[in-house]
Structure formats: structure tokens, C-alpha cells
Amino acid sequence: MSDKITFTIDGKECTGKKGQTIVEAAKENGVYIPVLCHYDGLKPAGACRICTVRVGGRNMAACTTPIANDIVVQNNIPELEDMRKAIVEMLFVEGNHMCPTCEKSGNCELQALGYRYLMMAPRFPYLWPTKQVDASIPKLYIDRNRCILCLRCHRGVTTKDGKHIFGPVKRGDRTMITADPELAAGMTDKQAQQAMDICPVGALLKKEVGFVVPVGKRKYDQKPIGSEIQGN
């Protein structure tokens, strides 16, 4: 039995390997599906829902749904695109995102998606939540104002023996990321940089450095998000 799987996304014939998710297979076929909580190599979380596609008429998160032969995936359709934009807008109103002063500006995936979806003002009223900054970790800040709870740090930043350095506490709209103080204190410079890189926004910021690459010359200042997959 072959491991090759064929299916379509918006009518385009795609091929992939058994065990791949729709997001992974789409990427290999040059089809961009927006993602935010997804990070190559990490177990998918299905948290942000921006990758929602329609499979056989049902809404599914493309980052957690495996491909199967002959499935018909709808991706770039107006109704879904508007709801994806709504997700970006929800993230902007449930946090306090001050792009112009943020160290991640230009490298921030949320900001890049805001541009991609031509978000002007969010359709939802701002919630202006009060969030706490945790500066107790020697090498990092956790700025929860900017956190989108994608759980990438929870999944991707661990000690050598696999303990979570970061994790979610509380629930609902009070959910927030916190760190194990002892484990976080043991982080090396390299690990702190990795944590900052794994964070799609500016919620994990390395201390004592900033703006090494000037705003205007950063990743998404050059090319919009998604162009690395779909070209142009």
C-alpha cells in the first residue's frame, strides 16, 4: 500500500504523505493556509483556529486534521477568510497590542496577519484587559499584554528532561502563561533566545537586547506573511 495521498484544496490537486496534517501537506503543495499557534516540529495545539478549513462541508482546524485520500478541502473562500480575520481581530481586542513600540514589530506573526487581512480597526470593541508583566525571570520578560495563548512556549520550551518551563494557568478569558521560577532561572541565553523566537508575538522578550535589526528591515517588512509558501 502506498503512503501517497491525493486530495484537493480549492480544486487544486495536491499530494501528501500519510500522517501529514492538512497544513503540512498544503505547504508542500504551495498552498498557504494561515497559521498562528502552529510551529513546525511541535505537536499541534489547534488553539488559534485561524487555520480553519472546510472539509466535506465541516469546519476543521487544518493544523490538527490529517489528510486522507480524496478529501475536498475549501481554504480560500470569502466566508472563511472573513472569520479568520475575525480571529485576528479578537486577538487584538482581547490583549493590549501596541505594535509601534513592540520589539517584535515586523517579526510578529499576529501583526503580519493583521496586514494580510487588511485589518483597519477590529470589528469588536476593545476589551482593555489588565494584564501583568512578569519580569522575575533573569533572562526574559513575559508580557501578557501581548500574549495570544498559542501555547507554543508551553509545547516547545522544555528542560533537558522534558519539564515544561512555561504553561497556562487559570481558565477562560483569565487564562495566562506563567513560568516555573526555578526552571526558568536555569535557562541559558540560547534557550531564552529560542523562547523569544518560538513566540509568534512579543510576549516573550529577551532582556538586555532590543532592536538589533531596525524596524523596516525585519522579516515581514520585506515580504508579507504567506509569501514564503505561495510565492510573490
Binding site: A45, G46, A47, C48, R49, I50, I87, M90, L91, V93, E94, F124, P125, L127, I148, L149, L151, P168, K170, R171, G172, D173, R174, T175
Partner: peptide, 18 residues
């Protein structure tokens, strides 16, 4: 529902408050 949302996904966490 706002009280009982687990907070994992964006639409339920933020959407119900909105």
C-alpha cells in the same frame, strides 16, 4: 459560558466575552 470556557481556543475564550 464565559466562566466555564477552558480558554484554549480564541473564538470561545474571547468570543463569549465579546
Amino acid at each position: 459560558f464565559v466562566e466555564e470556557s477552558c480558554g484554549w481556543c480564541v473564538p470561545c475564550r474571547a468570543g463569549n466575552v465579546i
